[in-house]
Design a protein around this nucleic acid. Structure first.
Lengths: 191, 191
DNA sequence: CGTGGATATGTACACACGTACATTCCATAT
DNA sequence: ATATGGAATGTACGTGTGTACATATCCACG
């Protein structure tokens, strides 16, 4: 029989990497996967592949797949809400606020199909996951609060709904709304 | 050794049922499952369980799970669009059309959480499935056409978006809009 | 200069899934 | 009455999944 063949490494073990912040990178990778494959196609293995880490790293940093999704969606909602806050916070008068809303819809929201798909995935997931429902509700409250810096409560609520509808319809439609069309709709409502 | 024990039926075979229209019932069962568990939780086995048929019946009547989803969502979209058509078709003047829209949002859409979840599932699924995208686009075109019986094209489009936003926000919110609030929003936009 | 504990890595297992397919049955047409 | 083909049923197989866990490695602290 042949010897123990000690030189042949039976399995090429991947060199260990010093990687602080890996957990953060995994959450970002999860967002990428959700965008590309949907929540349904988001698995431990796919996230690990995108982040280029071994599978075991997932179960080390997260106790369950649900925890990954929850953290990922929270990060997404925070990012979008921050843009919302900034645009409306920078507006000094009502006219500027109206322009900020138009910019938000036309550029920030419609600009990136990326973010939109993520948001729809979040909505659906939230319909069945209380933790995610809390994320969406906090996000909605924050958006409305930002609008209330410039509009009364009722207007803010209705305007928020209009924004949502404009974005959603544009995404689903074959011909998305142009910035001019968005401007027209917002001005008509606020006239 | 014991005999062949011929009396013991080794497996209790389920009595065969004469069941025309089973395919239709399976599609309805699929809609139930999608509503309760989401597209992600919709499997051959779960649909068969809900419809109380053996697993093999699924692969006999459908060539793939995707076909089941496509037929189910088409049925859902048709049902909602039919209500839309009827309400707006029955309106004789513009004032009646406005009331029809308010009723649609308040009663037909917000009334059944059931339908709303289905619609959101469809939107997300459509983002990645061209066949389903065609379903949503046909549905949107039909809704807009119904609105154009009473409003000009631009108004119809914007109103359609507003409707979508009102419904979506109400579903995601902790406190859904009351019919009075819906009425206020629609009238404000159309004033 | 150790060394201990956090981090990284590979692998195993049980389970649910989509799909294929052989078999059984019965409504209908002849 | 009986043949026939569509409908119904049960089961098998290969694949991918979430999760657990034993092992290996290295940074930070004494």
């Amino acid at each position: 029989m042949s010897g123990p063949a000690p030189a042949r490494s039976p399995v090429p073990r991947r060199p260990r990497r010093h990687d602080p912040g890996r957990r953060d990178r995994l959450i970002d990778a999860a967002l990428t996967v959700i965008t590309e494959r949907g929540v349904a196609g988001t698995t431990h293995r796919e996230i690990a592949r995108v982040a280029d880490v071994p599978l075991g790293s997932m179960t080390y940093h997260f106790t369950s797949l649900e925890e990954v999704l929850s953290e990922a969606f929270t990060r997404h909602a925070d990012a979008v809400a921050r843009v919302f806050d900034e645009r409306l916070g920078a507006a000094l008068d009502r006219a500027a606020a109206v322009e900020a809303v138009i910019t938000l819809v036309s550029d920030d929201l419609l600009g990136s199909q990326h973010d939109l798909v993520l948001t729809m995935e979040l909505y659906v997931a939230a319909a069945r996951n209380p933790a995610l429902r809390a994320v969406t509700q906090a996000w909605m409250a924050r958006s409305r609060q930002a609008l209330e810096r410039h509009f009364d409560a009722t207007t803010a609520r209705e305007l928020d709904a209009l924004i949502e509808g404009l974005v959603l319809h544009s995404v689903l439609s074959t011909d998305p709304m142009t910035p001019e069309q968005v401007r027209h709709a917002v001005h008509r409502y606020l006239r």
